[in-house]
């Protein structure tokens, strides 16, 4: 079962919820946590696990073969991303701009632009007891998060059995990276806070999830902080609010040190228990428990 934890904006507690939920689940069963916020991966700061290893992640980009090229200019013309340019009698490729569409490579009449691997980031994996943790980090200057997110999900699919609970810490926002990260999720948990900004960003996330026809629910973080507008919105829109995490300065303090919260704060543990009960009550969740045996 795949559960994506997402939010319309950053800083609502998405990473806090993912890391605490995964660690808590792992106390009783096999759990996978994958950090898909590849531009700013932060889950690893809260997970104390032994490094299992890492692997470079690649995308495919064209590499110019001067010997075969006749400088016909087709490659430059077909590239919609300005990733190819010609300076004197030389073709230059800009890997960070390339979307790996293969048009230049396959339309080159001389086969002078074969596709080659190019590093775009790194994937690391960790193991601690029942918890497997996977994170990917995009190299600075790389502009496209989506291919790395797709490869990270593919890694999880390949290495982790299908009946285990998998928590995906999704990137913030409502654009392509989030769509990629929530694509195959059985359930999306949207984390928000009870403020006007929280409500505005939640409503954008809800629109996105509806457009994607995803099954989703809401967790309210920093409950008690602002007003009740988020809750009335959820009632109006018929969206289940499955748990609330109270607003406490001590939570912010534990977080600032990179500590997990449910050991220290019973209200967080209560909220996690409610979320797990909701997950377990869903169709298909039975399989998950079998995986833990």
């Amino acid at each position: 079962m795949k559960i994506a934890v997402a939010s319309g904006k950053g800083g609502t507690g998405k990473t806090t919820l993912s890391t605490n939920l995964a660690s808590f689940l792992a106390e009783s069963r096999e759990t996978v946590l994958a950090d898909l916020d590849v531009e700013e991966p932060n889950s690893g700061l809260f997970i104390r696990a032994e490094a299992g290893g890492e692997e470079d992640k690649y995308k495919m980009i064209p590499e110019w073969d001067a010997g075969k090229c006749t400088l016909c200019g087709i490659c430059r013309e077909v590239c919609n991303f300005n990733a190819i340019t010609q300076i004197m009698d030389e073709i230059m490729v800009f890997p960070q701009l390339c979307h790996s569409c293969y048009a230049c490579s396959e339309l080159c009449p001389r086969d002078a632009l074969p596709m080659k691997k190019q590093k775009m980031g790194v994937l690391r994996y960790f193991k601690q007891g029942n918890l497997s943790f996977v994170e990917s980090e995009l190299d600075i200057g790389e502009e496209q998060a989506v291919p790395l997110i797709a490869q990270t999900i593919a890694y999880v699919d390949r290495h982790c059995p299908g009946d285990v609970i998998k928590i995906f810490d999704a990137p913030p926002g409502t654009s392509c990276p989030v769509i990629e990260a929530t694509k195959d999720a059985d359930l999306v948990i949207l984390v928000t806070e009870p403020t006007p900004v929280g409500l505005h960003d939640l409503s954008l996330a809800v629109e996105t999830m509806k457009a994607l026809k995803r099954d989703f629910c809401v967790v309210i973080n920093r409950d008690g902080l602002g007003n009740a507008d988020v809750e009335s919105y959820c009632v109006r829109e018929n969206i289940p609010v499955i748990a609330k995490i109270p607003n406490q300065r001590s939570i912010a303090e534990f977080y600032s040190d990179g500590k997990l919260l449910y050991h220290e704060i019973s209200a967080v543990k209560d909220a996690l228990e409610k979320i797990i009960a909701y997950i377990d009550a869903r169709p298909g969740a039975g399989k998950t428990e079998k995986g833990a045996e």
């Binding site: 300005n82 340019t85 300076i87 230059m92 800009f94 701009l97």
Partner: peptide, 12 residues
């Protein structure tokens, strides 16, 4: 009007 890659295009 270019969404991406304005730099290399201008450089060229």
């Amino acid at each position: 009007y270019e969404a991406h890659g304005a730099g290399p295009k201008t450089a060229q």
